[in-house]
Each structure stands twice: as structure tokens, then as C-alpha cells.
Amino acid sequence: LAYLIYTSGSTGVPKGVAIEHRNTVNLLRWAATAFAPQALARTLFATSLNFDLAVYECLLPLSVGTQVHLVPHLLDLAQQPCEVSLINTVPSAMQALLQAGGVPRGVTTVNLAGEPLTQALVDRLFAATEAGMVCNLYGPSETTTYSTWLAIRRGETTAPHIGRPIAHTAVYILDAQREP
């Protein structure tokens, strides 16, 4: 066991989820190869340790020897601008940060997870920043933060979708009868 994290998931009822070291290591190894060192150079850490996104924001940069830029709350960027290369958050928080004018212009990568990603938000991010990549990440806490991902690069016409499985994992799509 690496850690226990509590989630309400789709039920709304809190439950503890046990995450093993091997799952966390797999996530970190995948991300270390999927994201360029320049993208991870100065990762924003604005998520509570009680939320699974913190595993990515805190442990990934430390595991590859890059910087973690800690702020108490994501919206603090609107009042206290800073240089970060990667922001990892949920779409609704990114919408609020964009509205407040707090997204650092020089951010190179924006990861969005936990809620559906719209094309309008992707377009708005590319217009407001120098980001070269917006990623749609998906996964329940039980799978150590992320299970699938899609990288949308500036200039591409890829519509946001769930993406493909991260390394060493598989995804099965089932119908209403729980059949493939």
C-alpha cells in the first residue's frame, strides 16, 4: 500500500481507495515519458493533498528532478502571477482562472481532468496562452489518478475525447449490459 485516498466518485458516498506503490510508479513512469522535461520544468502544485491530482502535481516533478511551484489556491495566480510550465487542474477551475486573467501566458502544457473537456475551452486556452499542448486526462481515483489521456497540440483539429490508455494499462468499453 502506498496511500489511502477518499473519494465520492459517481455515488456521492465517500469511500477509501487503497493505492499500491506499483500503480503510483506506473503513473509516474508513464508521465515522465509522455511529457517533455521542458513541460515539467516548473509544475504548478495548487491541488489539496486530499485530491488525487496532487499525486501528479507533486510527485511527478520531484521524481524527475524538476521544480514544483506551490500556491495555496489556483486562483491565487490571478493576484500573484508566476512562471509555470505546466498546470494540472479541472476544466471548471481553468475556466475561472481564464476569467480572472490568471493563466500565465508562458505556460507550455495544460492538463485538464475530472470533468468533460469542451472544444471551446481548448480554443480559449490556445488563444490566451503560448501553450503548445492541452491534455484531456481521465481516470477514477482507483486507477491512481489517470487511466486515459489525449494530447491536443496547438494547430491540430482534434476534438476532445477520452483518449487512449496510459502505459501498461488497458481500457474496456462496455455497453449497458456490461458486455464489450
Rank of each mutant, 00 (worst) to 15 (best):
Y6S: 14
Q119R: 11
P61Q: 02
I166M: 07
A34L: 03
E57G: 00
F51D: 00
Q80E: 15
L70D: 08
T169F: 06
R29W: 09
A18H: 15
P165G: 04
L97P: 01
T118C: 05
G155N: 05
L77D: 01
R42Y: 04
T11N: 08
S85C: 04
G106S: 10
D175L: 06
V13L: 14
D175V: 10
V171D: 09
T158A: 15
T11I: 03
D175M: 10
N26T: 15
H168S: 13
L74S: 01
L60R: 00
R153S: 12
T7Y: 04
R153M: 11
M133P: 06
T108D: 13
N26L: 12
L70G: 06
H161F: 12
Y3G: 02
D175Y: 04
T144D: 03
A127M: 01
A41L: 08
G65T: 01
T118V: 08
Q38I: 10
P140A: 11
H73T: 08
S85T: 15
A36T: 14
R42G: 07
H21C: 09
M133Q: 12
I19N: 12
N136P: 06
Y146G: 00
P91W: 05
D175A: 09
P14Q: 08
T47L: 00
V84M: 04
L121A: 07
L174D: 07
Y3L: 15
R154G: 03
T129C: 04
S8W: 01
A176F: 02
T158E: 12
P180M: 14
A127E: 08
R153T: 11
G106E: 14
M133A: 10
Q177L: 13
F35G: 07
F45N: 14
Y56W: 13
A54T: 00
P91N: 07
A32D: 08
I19Y: 08
A36V: 11
T89Y: 01
Q80Y: 14
T109E: 14
D76Q: 13
L27F: 13
T143H: 07
E20A: 15
H69R: 14
Q99G: 11
G114K: 03
M133K: 10
C58W: 03
P72L: 01
A78T: 05
W30L: 06
C135A: 12
P14V: 09
V107A: 08
E179K: 15
H161W: 13
S147H: 09
G12K: 07
T11R: 05
K15Q: 09
L40F: 05
L59V: 03
A127Q: 10
L97H: 00
R42I: 09
P61K: 02
T108L: 13
G139V: 02
D52C: 02
N23D: 15
V25Y: 10
H161M: 02
V64A: 05
H161T: 08
E83Q: 13
E57A: 00
G155S: 07
A176H: 12
T145Q: 00
V107W: 00
G9T: 07
